[in-house]
Design a protein around this nucleic acid. Structure first.
Length: 260
DNA sequence: ATGGCGGTGGAGCACCGA
């Protein structure tokens, strides 16, 4: 079973890319982030025509997450539990059933947190605390679980071309990295790091300053696997070539192959 | 680090977000 994550930076602007990559890579499940549209505006006809069921948690202009699946989608949870006042659409979770088993998947769009010194950074850290709490609950189920998405965290210096350039950025703060490690320490496996231990593999290249041409990238899109999913991990890859397509997202797809 | 992108409102372009 192939499970992917991709921050598309507006699904309306990226529908052609999305359909092209679905056909190329044939993932079973795709976690999308930054839809930047309400549920009604999601390009459902095009995605369904490509053979996918859809669960959407959209929002006007900003955020928005979705789960696509070739298999039935059940038990959908929209919104990260733990704060009724949080109206930002950054989390959707569901169970995907296949003939060979069941996997629980979450599509995560963790807050960016910039600029430091504003309310955005504590919002990010608080959101991470809620994610940790949710992950603890889900781990109790002792089932294959994949928490996939744009974490907006550069876990270590190995995960940036120019780590020193990110020193003052919310993505690389010790508090952000500490909470990411706290999440991992619950028992998750960082799938890409497990398959590609040497670093220098990136998932995001800024639109500015020729970042792509200089390979000035960072690794911020992660697939975290519960022990029951990690036991079945066959491979994890980055679809880097997609960044060179015309009018690309600034993120590329990342996907795992699980022996499920 | 800064050479860009997509959203909104409202009808040309400032401003926001990331």
């Amino acid at each position: 079973m192939r499970i992917a994550t991709w921050n598309v930076n507006s699904v309306k602007q990226r529908t052609e890319h999305l359909v092209a990559w679905l056909k190329e890579a044939s993932p079973d499940v795709v976690c999308l982030q930054e839809l930047k549209c309400v549920d009604e505006a999601f390009p459902a006809l095009e995605i369904e025509a490509a053979g996918y069921n859809i669960a959407v948690h959209g929002q006007k202009a900003f955020n928005g997450v979705a789960i696509l699946s070739k298999h039935p989608i059940e038990d959908v949870v929209r919104g990260l539990p733990g704060d009724e006042a949080d109206v930002q659409s950054r989390y959707i979770e569901a169970v995907v059933s296949t003939a060979t088993g069941v996997v629980r998947v979450a599509s995560i769009y963790l807050p960016n947190g910039n600029p430091l010194g504003t309310e955005k950074f504590p919002y990010k850290l608080g959101w991470m605390d809620r994610l940790i709490a949710r992950a603890q609950e889900l781990l109790k189920l002792e089932e294959p679980l994949v928490l996939a998405g744009d974490y907006n965290v550069i876990p270590t210096a190995l995960d940036a071309k120019f780590p020193e350039a990110w020193a003052g950025d919310a993505l690389a703060q010790p508090e952000s990295r500490g909470k990411f490690r706290q999440l991992l320490s619950l028992g998750f496996t960082d799938a890409l790091r497990a398959c590609d231990p040497d670093g220098a593999t990136y998932t995001f290249w800024d639109y500015q300053a020729g970042a792509w041409q200089r390979n000035n990238g960072i690794r911020i899109d992660h697939l975290l696997l519960s022990p029951q999913a990690a036991d079945r991990l066959a491979d994890c890859r980055v679809a880097k070539h997609v960044r060179a397509w015309d009018k690309p997202s600034d993120h590329v797809p990342v996907y795992v192959d699980l022996m499920l």
